[in-house]
């Protein structure tokens, strides 16, 4: 019972929401947002897509098995804790370095890597939950 309006609006909304989720992920270190919120927004976008175009279409957008995605996310998050050990610092110490590009300069660090891991895990878990519920 998909309505035409839902399909049309979803076509625009899915990319917008996905962009918003990445925006939330990146601003999250000092301002409201972060990996968890970003992951949830991305999961919302995919949920919308699933309702409008079905599960296979949603899988095409995601491109990867959600369980594998959540696993990779966890690996990335834990790995970001290991990184400071290379610099002889305790686990999960935040390491930062400046990145200057022609467009502007920004700061990158292990906490962002951790957030990316959380983002992937939340997205993967939420999508696999949704798929299970959908099939039921």
């Amino acid at each position: 019972m998909t309505s035409r309006w839902l399909c049309i609006i979803t076509q625009f909304l899915t990319p917008l929401l996905l962009m918003l989720s990445v925006f939330l992920l990146l601003r999250g270190h000092n301002e409201p947002g972060g990996g968890f919120a970003g992951g949830l927004v991305a999961a919302c976008a995919l949920a919308l897509h699933m309702f409008a175009f079905g599960e296979t279409a949603m899988r095409k957008v995601l491109m990867i098995n959600p369980r594998t995605l959540s696993g990779i996310g966890l690996v990335v998050a834990v790995f970001s804790g290991f990184l400071p050990a290379l610099a002889q610092l305790p686990a999960f110490t935040g390491l930062w370095f400046d990145l200057t590009t022609p467009i502007g300069s920004t700061k990158l660090g292990t906490p962002i890597l951790f957030d990316v891991g959380v983002y992937m895990t939340v997205l993967g878990v939420c999508v696999s939950l949704m798929e299970d519920l959908h099939q039921e």
Binding site: N65, R67, T68, G71, I72, V75, V78, G81
Partner: peptide, 16 residues
Amino acid sequence: VLTPLLIAALMICLWQ
């Protein structure tokens, strides 16, 4: 503590 967590995460990646 961190190593078994990493192993567990790897296991989820290898679900298939």
